[in-house]
Design a binder for these strands. Structure first.
Lengths: 107, 107
DNA sequence: TTGACGTGAAACCAAAAGGTATCGCATTAA
DNA sequence: TTAATGCGATACCTTTTGGTTTCACGTCAA
């Protein structure tokens, strides 16, 4: 029962949200902790976290007055699922894909 | 020399553009042919095709007064590259979630 | 109990996204 | 040569997105 990839793809469209996902691979973080990593207000970060949650890419755990944001890698399943459709065209039209993936990339 | 995933992720954020990519797996299509598949004007489809091209997900070949749009699966490389960062968290987190937590309060 | 802390939520704004209608231009067909 | 075709480009509109400021509310510490 793979869910629609729509909200996940939309959540991944913004560089800030992708960076938040990277941050959350290191540790769970409160909103304030995430906000410290960006040059924007806590309210703006909160909106990004909401979109990430809507896309199923993070989960939250309320602990007292804090709210811990946690990466949910399983939320990437619909994305991988959609992308897997192109696997066969990958090989058919492109031979040296693996060399293309070699490099590192940033935003 | 993998390019930035930004424009590719942005191009994938819209359902119409993802559907266009699916269509182009079947055959190369002119703008008019793509437009026939959607309930919107040719100009709107053209904008989507431009964003797909900006993201490196399609290429175009001008043939006389026609312009053939062709899927470029290699353009997905930056996307796969970025997503591959989360591969290692995939299994680990899934195991943690399954063993430690039973109910998810995420919706 | 008081007050600081972490957050949620709302109002507001500028810019981008997604769409339309319309015009012009190069190419092709009659 | 003339007219239809396929497309590019522009102006314009509405909605969404990404950001701010401000305020209210529950929680925790002193």
């Amino acid at each position: 029962m793979t869910q629609s990839p729509h909200l996940a793809f939309r959540a991944l469209a913004d560089p800030t949200r992708r960076e938040i996902m990277r941050l959350l691979t290191e540790q769970d973080m409160t909103i304030a902790q995430v906000s410290d990593q960006f040059d924007m207000t806590r309210a703006a970060v909160k909106k990004h976290l909401t979109m990430l949650s809507d896309g199923g890419l993070i989960t939250t755990e309320v602990r007292g007055r804090e709210r811990l944001n946690r990466l949910n890698p399983a939320g990437l399943a619909p994305v991988f699922d959609w992308l897997s459709f192109f696997d066969r065209f990958w090989d058919a039209r492109l031979n040296d894909l693996k060399t293309a993936i070699e490099g590192e990339s940033d935003d």
